[in-house]
Write a protein that binds this DNA or RNA. Structure first.
Lengths: 287, 287
DNA sequence: AACGATTTGTTCGTATGTATC
DNA sequence: TGATACATACGAACAAATCGT
């Protein structure tokens, strides 16, 4: 009784969706039809639809209609290191996604040299110095899935890691490349995870409603070498409605840590593994 | 030019806020004043304010006005185990919060016995069996900060852990209690992290706008014993606008892993540490 | 305790713009 | 090109919460 009408309408539609009376992919009645059916105004119906969008139940397509979202299979990103494979190394991004029988794709890295801003303070670099940024867009099954930007101190390039400033993939991965070229070994990292409204460019890439109703997850990975100096900052942005993260600590049964229904993609540097195998990785796994 | 008017208004107000022309805590002009100032309708002004709410810049208080939010100091929750303290053990929730010079508080656990539902499938328990749930509300400096519910298989109570079904704190923590009483040692856990719109009760406790514009973060921690059997499922819910999570893997400099400006509160069982010290915890830390 | 003034919340009706088919 | 459907915008009215008198 106390509930405003737009929520009454929204909850009624939600029940119909969850009872499969409105199956996944189905089109909802138009706003004008709903207005008549609930004897409300079109604006009130639209408020109800916004409420459903926020909960990820429907999506609107201008000129077409409002549709029940297809059941999204969340993509699981494990933040604490991939399990050993037969080669003893972590798998690449594409291998990990393919293991789930899903089709990954990624643009070639776009490379820029920028002034260090506050946003890359984790690299411990002064404001007048420069950083290399390598930016990549990733999709799964044709759906845009994440935006990723890695920052490296420009000093690494001057010391000889010149391929960092070349566009295009570094097939062995930048972590391995830095170890081969400069002997810099990545021994650990810290991820920080936060939720915020999407920027305009993120809304466009992920095709999210422009009013910020669906938020994004930002994961900032700061990687350290043996001296404890930060060597890389990777910022990954994921739409919150189709992603899920996992963290394993201590002994976790293998069937849980790497379930066949999930996939383990780290916010790796470029397209390769982000962590030096054999280093001080995650705790040993029980067998 | 292409931007709709409500976003033009919102971005203008955003600039004023970020330039401190509208300092934290200040009241914005009323909707009617803004309507006159921007020569728009009140509804359009209200759309602009909703856009600012979604970005966490302002809040509305019915009957009072719209205010610039005070700078929120995010509370950092570290998911990969607390650093060793002098005693060699993790700290309790209250100790960890106090270490940041902030005032923690928590309600006494509310204990219930429930049928196992789909929501606790991680415990690997059939639908007709029973679980113990222990629910707690936590606040910091008087601000509601998290809701936490731990589930234990009822079998543990039958085997002698009778204090699980008593309301009130288990001061040494349920993890230590289970090890003392039944010899069950927690050796690892998996956290899964997801973002969703808040339920009604969560909106009320966290005082979030009722339309789900601010989302919550749900962390599900499944803890395992030495046999790889799940012994506990803890579901923690945090409002996304004042929380931040950290994950440390491998060697991370101490100043980063445990910065003085952050605090390390795990989604522990009840109010005590969640992880058996000396077990297969996170990798050793560099000095 | 009661009341009035102020401010945000909800709902309505209408009109026009823009994307899609 | 026209028809359909969602997006934005306007103006108006009343409800509900808050605060001071």
């Amino acid at each position: 009784m106390a509930d405003p009408m737009y929520r009454v309408i929204a909850e009624d539609l939600q029940n119909q969706i969850e009872a499969r009376m409105l199956p996944a992919g189905a089109q909802l009645p138009t706003e004008l039809e709903l207005r008549d059916r609930y004897d409300a105004s079109r604006n009130t119906v639209r408020d109800a639809i916004k409420w459903l969008i926020t909960r990820g139940l429907v999506e609107t397509r201008p000129g077409q209609g409002t549709f029940v979202v297809e059941k999204i299979v969340p993509f699981v990103t494990t933040l604490t290191g991939t399990p050993e494979t037969s080669s003893g190394e972590g798998r690449t991004y594409k291998d990990e996604v393919s293991a789930l029988f899903r089709q990954p794709s990624a643009t070639a890295p776009r490379v820029e040299i920028q002034e260090a801003s506050d946003a890359v303070a984790e690299l411990g670099i002064g404001a007048d110095q420069q950083v290399v940024s390598r930016h990549q867009e990733r999709s799964i099954d044709g759906t845009p899935w994440s935006l990723q930007t890695s920052f490296y101190p420009m000093a690494l390039v001057l010391r000889g890691a010149t391929r960092l400033i070349q566009a295009g993939d570094i097939t062995e991965g930048t972590v391995a490349y830095l170890e081969e070229t400069l002997g810099i070994k990545q021994v650990g990292y810290q991820d920080t995870i936060m939720v915020r409204a999407p920027h305009g460019s993120e809304s466009r890439f992920f095709r999210l409603p422009g009013d910020g109703r669906i938020s994004v997850i930002e994961v900032r990975r700061t990687a350290f070498d043996e001296q404890g100096a930060p060597v890389r900052l990777t910022i990954s942005v994921y739409p919150a409605d189709r992603n899920l993260f996992a963290v394993n600590v201590g002994q976790v049964p293998e069937s849980i840590a790497a379930p066949p229904s999930a996939v383990l993609a780290e916010p790796a540097a470029d397209s390769d593994q982000s962590f030096a195998a054999g280093g001080a990785g995650p705790a040993p796994r029980q067998e």
